[in-house]
Write a protein that binds this DNA or RNA. Structure first.
Lengths: 336, 336
DNA sequence: TGATCGTATTGAATCGATTCAAAGAAGAAC
DNA sequence: GTTCTTCTTTGAATCGATTCAATACGATCA
């Protein structure tokens, strides 16, 4: 009926609990005959280790806690996938929490992971969590920030150069001859968004005849993009931008939907050239295949876990910062 | 340095460990002054409950384990999202494991969840896991199957009528006047795939002049769809189907990509009408907005957790089976 | 036969939160 | 002043796996 414990297994196999534990964790220390008997007892009883008890004793779980801004964004699932694969190589598991760009949800997951004494955390942060990171460090729980470097460089991070990404995108739009640019993204509190905008501004600054309008939205979602697109469609044609840089691909897909909608008929790229960010799989399959800025998503996740593992090995090692360079991917949405 | 325990808190607050625990779990049983002192001690020490110890004592964790076939499929993240929201209402958390249609990965996650003595499981199964479900029931861990009903009805499930979905899709294609249909999907071991095909066959059976070709692929992904699409493009036009029912939207998007590719130029729906399954957000934003069969994904997840909670309340209750009806969504990919 | 060394096994102690029977404290009633 | 109630607080026992010092067992050699 109820689950059996090492004690039951020991009883059945005619050995002590210590031996059972050794069979499970250090089989080389146990005589072959004992291993065999214990193994049989385990099978017969259907014994399954109680992870809580192991953890309690070991002081640390075999799970890596990961918090991302939005599980519905393929960029983050790719990221998670990369992390998961790397973790699996060391017998670790990744549990995924979705903050949905909500500080309360983010805090809930981080609290939970702390209570679970996770092996480490990989965090795509929304709010400023510096204090928590300090506490984690004191407690010996390593954390790696992804897609964002820590303000003071105190904590390891894996990120992509979002300024460069912003520049790449906007330089490309300008090279097409577009002059009335717009940036659609938000909330500005998200560092990636702010950085991409800053990169865009830098690129624009070099061209006195180019303007950059900033259209702030409250979430990086298809829905928010569609709403912003509807706004633009509602303007007199002369007041519309002739090129848009969207803070990510979900937003650019939303924009595209609004532009392609019956009655809207804003030609992309004819009237408005459109470029997004992340280069998610779906971007290439959009109504008009979308240009984008590609990030090595799975690699970012993998690298984050590598750093985590290294920090567990040597907790006193200095924080590492890996910055990947983004890449321009040109598709129909920005081709004359 | 190291984390503090209830004992430390008790010492600092000048009370016993029992009182500290009561403050945490049954504050109404403790005098206000004690609550206040304990609370202060907790804050000062930065005390964080050790979940492993709680679980060990309670015998069950506050986490629901969920295994899905593919986290990159928005259908499943929507499902997870629905489950998560419902669970949060009862102070539970959902951890997500991605089996990737791989029996070994699936088993690994299920093992892990058993070791963790999860509160319950929500499983979108790939392999036949009947034996495990029986064991779980014996151990008192409720499990709910999603998007698939158990063979013998022994275990609770929440599913969508995939036969009806298959019929809906194919009836629609036939009503457009198409006669040379194809079904693209696989592996056939996945019940949903088999059922959708069966529904399709049933619909075709009523029309002697309609044929249904089955094109089996090895995964329900964009990539596999693209490959199948390339195959079709490579055929002489007369040998191509004039309508395709894809087992899910990822596959249909892959097909569409292949058809729209430079040099392919297969008109959708002109030469080939195309309908998918799941109605993921991205389907409506595709090159040609995709018709699809809609499933109430978030609702499925929510319902699964509701059933789970009810089974924990009353373990002896009979298994419940909820079946939702799918819905046809017509878009440009099947409009003359 | 006894001493010595190496390997195998034992089982009590431990991790930290929760529970619950028992004890204590403070009032109320007579 | 004593007896009852009611409300708080206490702390030992518990959950189950792991660890490690202590012990047992065998084999080897003098």
């Amino acid at each position: 009926m109820s689950a059996s414990s090492v004690r039951d297994v020991a009883l059945r196999a005619g050995v002590s609990v210590g031996t059972v534990s050794n069979v499970l964790n250090h089989p080389e220390k146990v005589s072959p005959s004992a291993v065999e008997r214990v193994q049989r007892a385990i099978d017969e009883l259907g014994f399954i280790r109680n992870d809580a008890a192991r953890q309690l004793r070991n002081g640390r779980s075999r799970t890596i806690g990961m918090v991302v801004l939005d599980v519905r964004n393929p960029f983050f699932t790719d990221l998670a996938r990369g992390a998961e694969d790397e973790a699996a190589g060391s017998g670790l598991m990744v549990t995924l929490g979705n903050s949905d760009e909500n500080p309360a949800r983010e805090a809930t997951y981080l609290d939970l992971f702390e209570q679970q004494r996770v092996y480490g955390m990989v965090i795509s942060a929304y709010a400023d969590i510096t204090e928590r990171l300090i506490r984690l460090k004191q407690r010996g729980i390593p954390a790696v920030l992804v897609d964002r470097s820590s303000p003071d460089g105190e904590f390891s991070s894996v990120s992509v150069d979002d300024l460069a990404g912003g520049r790449l995108a906007v330089d490309h739009l300008i090279s097409l001859g577009r002059r009335r640019l717009a940036f659609v993204g938000g909330p500005m509190g998200i560092r990636q968004v702010a950085d991409r905008l800053e990169g865009a501004r830098a690129a624009v600054a070099a061209h006195p005849d180019v303007s950059l309008e900033v259209i702030e939205i409250d979430a990086l979602s298809v829905l928010a993009g569609r709403a912003a697109g509807a706004d633009i469609v509602g303007r007199a044609p002369a007041l519309r931008p002739d090129a848009i840089f969207a803070a990510n691909d979900l937003v650019s897909m939303g924009l595209l939907q609004a532009f392609a909608m019956q009655g809207a008929d804003v030609a992309v790229p004819g009237q408005i050239a459109l470029i997004g960010y992340d280069d998610i799989d779906f971007a290439s399959a959009a109504v008009v295949p979308l240009s984008s800025i590609r990030q090595p998503s799975a690699l970012i996740g993998k690298t984050a876990v590598e750093i985590l593992l290294a920090e567990v090995q040597d907790p006193s090692s200095p924080p590492r910062h890996v910055v990947f360079q983004p890449e321009l991917v040109v598709r129909a949405s920005t081709q004359a």
